[in-house]
Nucleic acid binder design. Structure first.
Length: 565
RNA sequence: UGCCCGAUAGUGUAAUUGGCAACACGACAGAUUCUGACUCUGUUAUUCUAGGUUCAAGUCCUAGUCGGGCAGCCA
């Protein structure tokens, strides 16, 4: 739901469907569920689904369950279950009930016997390959399995034997008896159970037959009294089967509604590809800050609020869209701008010496504390004191010996304000043997101290700095997009997504930071003024923080420069 | 050559369900600024095409075009 300018509330198509079903009496409440398969870590696409399902429950004063769709023991692990629960909570949601599809295995088995007795399911001896051949093609109908007309008695006996482990893996299946000529493949006698000897993360070795998705999902929804079963577009063709099972079992029939999954430029979202990135060590793990996983984005410094805002921002529809990654970046900037304390850090230092700075009797610099606002967007954030001296570090790129008029920073013969400090005038530089500027020499204007400026001077630029003697030295990990092209899932020229990994997606560097930052705690988020938002990484040790760049600040000057070549 | 679904500024989402095509982001131009950030202002459309119904069509009908999905004992 969102507000239009004239105050009306606009609802997306799922909310409209819910309104209609509530009004018609088809359902009297909203019950949703988020049903991940625990075979990998959740990514931002799942976050959209989580926000949708839990969000709907909140808006309609209904309920939302978390249910693990754990019907394939070959792929599923407890590690993934734990990470999924952590991610859902971190996003800010609490499920009403926690379930596992595997909790329903007994009920599912009973229902299967019921369908067999009703003559609506049969045991099929076809091999996997034969099953495929019999299924037909896109343009030709399938053919009936030669085992399709077994009697309910025979089917029951064989099915129980399947359950009891009398047959090897893959030898037989239980199939629903629907219509081999249906234009919808899902209705061509879909497999309900396969024989599979694998240790299940919850049921152990109790079962050697496991239900297929279609046979487990809708029935699980039904058992939980779900009203709206929201899933992604690729399940649209499954809906007739979803309804067929509920109707033939004569059980509560939730309404399945499909929406388009989330795609974002410069990201891959398939679990298979993400698994590959992890397994082949192209990244450091599922929570590598370059991953689109919720845990990766969390480590990168994204906030739950920004991710929820992003999900709301991209909307819900049936159109298969690709969201520009800048919208995600914008969402986190927008939130962090409001909440992240400002700090100063210099990543690529250049020495700046103030030649007229006062000295103590012993020849050392006088140290003066200056007053800096913590967050101009948030008066409640207060202010802090930073040590200022005659020996500072500024950013290399903030100084040019000679520069065009549009360059507002420091140049020889020019002036600039040192943020929360003084205005300085540059009168000379010191170069090394190679002619590279290694130090800039300035004078400061005592009447221009930040907060008590009586000079009336105006300068065009303000730059950040740290006092050389007081700066803490820390590690900084500057992250960038993991891929070099917009659509890494489909690169040109026979390349794969692995060929378009951005070799510069992680740049480790040092930074010199204002003193308070040395004690930053894991998870702390700050804005390095004029650079970007940073978050303290779990790899940090006490007194040795490591800062991950969440996202850089928008850089208008960088754009202008790039354009001018 | 089958079935299902979709198509509205560059990108995404709206349009009181047949009544002046709007909002966000981006891009561009400008203002402001002790962060070239933030903020503010302006610019950015033959609603895929062709017919039809209607006083009136983005919305309804017909045909077409383009895009996505479907032939796992995966989910």
């Amino acid at each position: 739901m969102s507000e239009t300018p004239d105050g009306r509330v606009s609802k997306h198509f799922i909310e409209q469907a819910i309104d209609a079903d509530l009004a018609s009496g088809r359902f009297d409440r909203v019950a949703t569920r988020f049903p991940p398969e625990p075979n990998g870590y959740l990514h931002i696409g799942h976050a959209k689904s989580i926000c949708l399902n839990f969000g709907l429950a909140q808006k309609y004063n209904g309920t939302c369950n978390l249910r693990f769709d754990d019907t394939n023991p070959a792929k599923e692990e407890t590690e993934y279950v734990d990470s999924i629960m952590e991610d859902v909570r971190w996003l800010g949601f609490q499920w009403d009930n926690l379930h596992y599809a595997s909790d329903y295995f007994d009920q599912l088995y009973l229902w299967a016997e019921q369908l067999i007795k009703d003559g609506k399911a049969y045991v099929c001896d076809l091999t996997g390959e034969q099953t495929r051949e019999y299924r037909g093609t896109l343009t030709e109908p399938g053919r009936n399995s030669p085992f399709r007309d077994r009697t309910p008695e025979e089917n029951l006996e064989l099915f129980r034997a399947m359950r009891d482990g009398k047959f090897p893996d893959g030898a037989r299946t239980l199939r629903a008896k629907i219509d081999m000529a249906s234009p919808n493949f899902n209705l061509r006698d879909p497999v309900m159970y396969r024989i599979l000897r694998a240790h299940h993360h919850r049921t152990g070795d109790k079962w050697c037959i496991y239900p297929m998705y279609d046979w487990a999902h809708g029935q699980s929804d039904s058992l939980e009294n779900i009203s709206f079963s929201i899933c992604t577009l690729e399940f649209e063709n499954h809906r007739p089967l979803y309804d067929w099972f509920c109707q033939n079992l004569k059980i509560h029939n939730p309404r399945q509604i499909e929406f388009a999954r989330l795609n974002i430029t410069y990201m891959v979202m398939s679990k298979r590809k993400l698994l590959q990135l992890v397994k082949e060590k192209h990244v450091k793990g599922w929570d590598d800050p370059r991953m689109p996983t919720i845990s990766g984005l969390r480590r990168r410094g994204y906030t739950p609020e920004s991710m929820r805002n992003f999900a709301a921002d991209v909307g819900v529809a049936k159109f298969n869209s690709v969201i520009d990654i800048v919208r995600l970046e914008n969402a986190v900037r927008d939130h962090l701008n409001r909440v992240a304390p400002r700090r100063m850090a210099v990543l690529d230092p250049l020495k700046l010496t103030i030649t007229n700075w006062p000295k103590n009797a012993d020849g050392s610099d006088v140290i003066e504390m200056t007053h800096a606002v913590n967050n101009p967007e948030d008066p409640d954030a207060g202010s802090r004191e930073i040590p200022f001296s005659g020996s500072l570090l500024i950013e290399q790129e903030d100084f040019r010996e000679e520069a065009p008029g549009k360059f507002f920073r420091l140049k020889k013969g020019g002036a600039v304000r040192l943020r929360a400090g003084y205005i300085v005038d540059c009168h000379d530089v010191v170069k090394d043997a190679g002619g590279k500027v290694v130090e800039v020499l300035c004078t400061y204007d005592p009447a221009t101290k930040s907060g008590e400026d009586t000079s009336g001077r105006k300068v065009k630029g303000t730059i950040h700095w740290v006092s050389a003697a007081h700066a803490g030295e820390v590690e900084v990990r500057n992250y960038d997009r993991l891929f070099t092209i917009e659509s890494p899932e489909t690169p040109d020229g026979g390349k794969t997504f692995l060929d378009v990994i951005n070799p510069e997606s992680l740049q480790i560097t040092k930074a010199w930071v204002e003193p308070s930052l040395v004690d930053a705690a894991v998870g702390d988020r700050v804005q390095f003024e004029r650079l970007g938002y940073y978050c303290v990484d779990p790899d940090s040790a006490p007194g040795k923080p490591i800062f991950n760049r969440t996202v850089p600040l928008r850089d208008t000057w960088g754009k202008i420069e790039a354009k001018q070549g």
